[in-house]
Design a protein around this nucleic acid. Structure first.
Length: 430
DNA sequence: GCGGATCAG
DNA sequence: ATGGCTGATCCGC
């Protein structure tokens, strides 16, 4: 029993904190050595303690799921299988292989821009970000296990020669603009996902020119195109043929973690059921339909059949806008209040740029133990100005302070979000 | 509607 | 000493 607990904890550490070799450029490095260094620089920190706590919650979720699984009868499963089969037939009828979808993803984008502007960096391990957090790293640095979303001080331990370049968003935005102008030539309705990523529908373009560009990752739908864009990095290309056989073959060998929407936690839950790739996923669909929500298993179903959107949606209207900031411990009421005011000013300014309003104000707090809390209030009318927002924001903060009283709120992050409320009348007020 | 969680980039 | 920020969505109240 004692041993069981300890090994669960060790496993928990690995799944949540350990090196993620999902990314390109992470093949064939010394995982054990890297994980040991990450572990040593993490152990005992408040961040790490909180990660352990979160991991324990995930383990409990899994335990609950396993108990549910144990209660499922053969009869139950048979019935579910019949429903799954019916749905598969239905979905199969909707399969559309006539579109050509491309997902473009700039390789190590921020790092590439910095190396372009400072060629000496090309031969060195480098990353973009700060000692607190890295946005991305070049391929030299990846050999040491240095990757995006890793704090710089840990990266420095993995690779003491690492050069950390501060982020320069204006520059990346400018390059992104150039890139998007090129995208528009191929598909005027392309959908940008971030500064360095976009979906393009190439179907019409290819009808006009007959030559096949072999410079891109191509597939018959968005889900597949996204996965393909990860293949043969860097500088490699991949085209998934538009046949059902090719698609099914491709999808069956795919680890579930590669699927957009399946993250660390979902992966761990699926793994607990013996599911690690999409072949297992399709084999266990009846079981999944009984253990997961409808939305979740329908998504699994689509994925296991290699289906995805064949039309790129037009850019949706934004639903919320937020601003948050991390700082060193702040416990004084007056300081917190003036920060609250500052954040409201920033938010109001951002809202003004887009001419937006919102009905729901949400306060986000993270204490020095990395515990996150949100507190929201929905108004009967939409607000946008600093004073309107601040009036609500300061009350939300006060309520939290009163809740904790007489202990002070020992904060490391504060943020505010304004949201368009659902329901009738939401549209005209936003 | 609220709050916690997950996910992506 | 240093463990981010923004936006979306889902689940279970």
């Amino acid at each position: 029993m004692e041993n069981g607990v300890i090994s669960t904890k060790a496993e928990g550490f690995l799944s949540r904190m350990a090196l993620n070799d999902n990314k390109a450029g992470m093949e064939g490095l010394d995982r054990d050595k890297i994980n040991k260094i990450i572990m040593e620089s993490s152990k005992g920190s408040r961040f790490y303690e909180n990660e352990l706590k979160k991991e324990e919650q995930v383990n409990q979720r899994i335990e609950k799921m396993m108990l549910q699984k144990a209660k499922i009868t053969e009869q139950h499963l048979k019935k579910a299988q019949a429903q799954v089969d019916r749905m598969a037939t239905e979905l199969e009828r909707s399969r559309d292989l006539s579109r050509v979808i491309v997902h473009v993803d700039m390789d190590a984008f921020y790092a590439a821009v910095e190396m372009r502007d400072c060629p000496e960096l090309k031969d060195k391990p480098m990353a973009v970000g700060s000692m607190s957090m890295l946005s991305t790293s070049n391929y030299h640095a990846r050999k040491y296990g240095v990757r995006a979303a890793m704090p710089g001080f840990i990266a420095k331990k993995l690779c003491p020669d690492l050069v950390i370049v501060p982020t320069n968003f204006d520059k990346y935005r400018a390059v992104s603009k150039e890139i998007r102008e090129i995208f528009a030539e191929y598909d005027p309705h392309f959908q940008p996902l971030s500064l360095d990523e976009a979906y393009l529908d190439f179907t019409d373009h290819l009808d006009q020119r007959q030559s096949w560009p072999d410079t891109l990752r191509i597939a018959p739908n968005m889900m597949l195109a996204k996965v393909c864009s990860d293949k043969n990095k860097p500088n490699g290309q991949y085209r998934l043929p538009s046949t059902k056989e090719a698609v099914m073959d491709f999808v069956q060998n795919l680890p579930v973690r590669k699927i957009c929407g399946i993250g660390k936690v979902s992966e761990k839950m699926l793994n607990a059921l013996g599911i690690s790739n999409c072949f297992h996923l399709s084999q266990q669909m009846a079981l999944l339909s009984l253990l997961f929500s409808e939305t979740a298993w329908h998504h699994f179903m689509q994925v296991s059949l290699g289906l995805g959107s064949t039309h790129i949606p037009r850019h949706e209207e934004r639903k919320s806008m937020s601003t948050e900031r991390t700082f060193r411990e702040m416990s004084k009421t007056e300081e917190q209040l003036s920060l609250c005011r500052e954040l409201c000013e920033d938010l109001a300014e951002d809202l003004k740029k887009e001419g937006l309003k919102g009905k729901t104000v949400t306060l986000k707090l993270k204490n020095v133990k990395f515990e996150v809390k949100t507190r929201a209030l929905t108004l009967p009318y939409a607000v946008a100005t600093v004073d309107e927002i601040f009036a609500v924001a300061k009350d939300l903060l006060k309520t939290e302070r009163d809740n904790e009283s007489p202990l002070p709120l020992r904060l490391r992050l504060m943020g505010y979000r304004l949201e368009k409320a659902e329901g009738l009348g939401g549209e005209q007020d936003w």
